[in-house]
Design a protein around this nucleic acid. Structure first.
Ligand code: MN
Ligand code: MN
Ligand code: ZN
Ligand code: ZN
Lengths: 151, 151
DNA sequence: CTTATTTTGCAACTATGTTGCTTTTTTAAT
DNA sequence: ATTAAAAAAGCAACATAGTTGCAAAATAAG
């Protein structure tokens, strides 16, 4: 499925639509941060966002915006081995803090981009007697499609 | 397999033996921190260790000791959703920074203990074309054996 | 346009982690 | 046991990450 690159106006409309749908006030900061997620493929860390919009918006605003988006189910967090939380857009099915993110995440060791592998489903696991699991996170590390060495 | 609770002397000998085997100088701090891992089941965060031995040893020493242990393959790190690295003892097969920790980790949402489920093996995954994975981390969340509600 | 509500910025603070350098401890050789 | 070399620990200073309270500004609703 090849998707045409969206125009700036389309992305802006999409950002506004997401905010409206989630009953959030439409503000410059929220739209700007949503743009970042809509414009590119990988996940973003707080630091990435701060580097890009930090002069325009306060650190605290970025933290609060990300938390709001997580609460609303607009984005989800991805735990990584290097102990820095990444955030990525949720698919439409997510709602109100209750995410249905049963997909695997992939961190490229070359370009350091974190991908949502939406088609790789979190496998079912058999736990020892007495352990009841409510959620499983899978994070794979390796080399991504773009960084794969050419033969 | 029921294991008898070890005496303090036995734990101390074990700590010394681990340090010797890994060509590490035997120091009070390293033995003390190893004791903490040997004495109890779950994983430890830097903060946990600092609370227990922080008055006796400097924060920096704890950081450096943990890093040394990771480098030597004595302990391994466990990524968690709350963005705080936990450390747990490696099984004997691990060596020199090259861990063979293909087991699943379990974080209890009640007691917040992190367990190494040594018998639950990391499942094999089929990745999309172009992605090559070198390592997969699985962290499950739920209620542990001890916190399971009694019927 | 006006008012109530929400969001933002700012300051201050806590927590976490790192680095350079000096002193102390440990190890190994005499 | 002494001693010299090597390693570890402590200290200070710094960097990054994240939180909270409150006042000012922006947004939404009427
Ligand atoms: Mn994802
Ligand atoms: Mn483990
Ligand atoms: Zn890559
Ligand atoms: Zn528990």
């Amino acid at each position: 499925m090849i998707m045409a690159k969206q125009t700036v106006v389309q992305i802006d409309n999409q950002a506004t639509e997401i905010l409206t749908r989630n009953n959030l006030s439409i503000t410059g900061g929220r739209k700007r941060i949503l743009h970042l997620f809509l414009e590119q493929a990988g996940a973003l860390a707080h630091g990435d966002i701060e580097k890009k919009v930090g002069e325009k918006f306060d650190r605290v605003t970025i933290y609060r915006t990300l938390q709001t988006f997580v609460d609303k189910g607009i984005i989800h967090t991805i735990p990584t081995a290097d102990n820095s939380i990444r955030y990525a857009l949720c698919k439409d099915e997510c709602s109100g803090g209750h995410h249905h993110d049963h997909h695997v995440h992939f961190v490229c060791t070359v370009c350091h981009i974190t991908y949502c592998l939406d088609d790789v489903v979190t496998p079912a696991l058999k736990f020892p007697k007495g352990y009841t699991s409510s959620h499983v996170e899978v994070v794979a590390e390796g080399v991504c499609r773009n960084c794969k060495p050419q033969h």
